[in-house]
């Protein structure tokens, strides 16, 4: 599992696959205030990204890979503001 869930946040690590999207969505629904930690995330499946975009959560840590961050930041950051 590339996602560690706690009450406050979901920590996405290394490669998040599509198999983990169901759990992620469930957790996001169950934890409307839950934050997202992408600090150690290297890649997430498009489906996971879509789920996160829809959830509009606070990103407590961005991926350390700046190029990866560049891809997803506009989508996730914009939502933070909403």
């Amino acid at each position: 599992m590339a996602i560690d869930y706690s009450e406050e946040r979901a920590v996405l690590k290394s490669l998040v696959t599509i198999q983990e999207v169901d759990d992620l969505q469930e957790w996001l629904i169950a934890h409307p205030q839950g934050e997202i930690d992408l600090g150690e995330c290297e890649h997430m499946h498009t489906a996971a990204l879509q789920t996160l975009t829809s959830a509009r959560r606070m990103i407590s840590a961005w991926p350390s890979d700046t190029s990866f961050r560049g891809w997803i930041e506009p989508l996730l950051v914009k939502q933070e503001a909403q």
Partner: peptide, 28 residues
Amino acid sequence: RSTPGVLWGKVENDCATQDINDLDPYQC
């Protein structure tokens, strides 16, 4: 992301306008 010679890229979708409860994450 794995496109050769990629200099910059971005993803766009309108998921933010969708309620997470109704989201079908399996539709790209």
